[in-house]
């Protein structure tokens, strides 16, 4: 089936099987391996991308469902060579250890700050509650998102 998906502002047309999952479309068809593939059961959240600006677990969305829609992956956060403030926050506050959960965390954090520029700790924890950090580095992830909230205009 032929689909046309706009990913990080660039439109890609591909012939895919309907059973292809969005996470594999991004990683294997487009080579965008920043989006990770984890539990495969919509639990862990490492595969979170934004679909029309809303975070979704891409292991549980079919690529054909994204036909005609816009997807943003972690590769799309950087603007004009500048890291997004949430990315900078993770750098500044040691928000990643192994890095496996990081792309999903970043995509949800960006969405949270777009809707709520000044979230408190509880709101941050609620926002990322569908995402697992197996390094258990949640304290620093929360600090990183707070850093981004306080430095929304930061340039790298």
């Amino acid at each position: 089936m032929r689909i046309s998906v706009t990913v990080n502002g660039q439109t890609h047309v591909r012939d895919v099987e309907p059973r292809l999952l969005l996470v594999h479309f991004l990683r294997d068809e487009l080579g965008l391996t920043g989006t990770h593939w984890g539990c495969d059961t919509s639990n862990c959240g490492v595969c979170v991308v934004q679909l029309d600006g809303v975070p979704v677990k891409s292991c549980t969305v079919l690529a054909v469902m994204a036909d005609g829609h816009e997807v943003t992956t972690v590769e799309g956060l950087e603007k004009d060579g500048e890291l997004d403030p949430v990315q900078q926050g993770f750098v500044q506050c040691h928000g990643l250890q192994c890095g496996f959960c990081t792309p999903g965390m970043l995509m949800t954090a960006r969405w949270l700050l777009d809707r709520n520029p000044d979230p408190d700790e509880g709101e941050i924890r609620e926002a990322i509650s569908g995402q697992l950090c197996r390094c258990t580095g949640y304290e620093n992830i929360v600090r990183s998102v707070r850093w981004a909230a306080e430095n929304q205009e930061a340039k790298a």
Binding site: S42, G45, V48, V54, P55, V56, K57, T60, V61, T108, E126, A127, S129, G130, Q131
Partner: peptide, 9 residues
């Protein structure tokens, strides 16, 4: 119910 990201979908 589930988590915020699942609830989006």
């Amino acid at each position: 119910i589930a988590d915020p990201v699942v609830r989006n979908r």
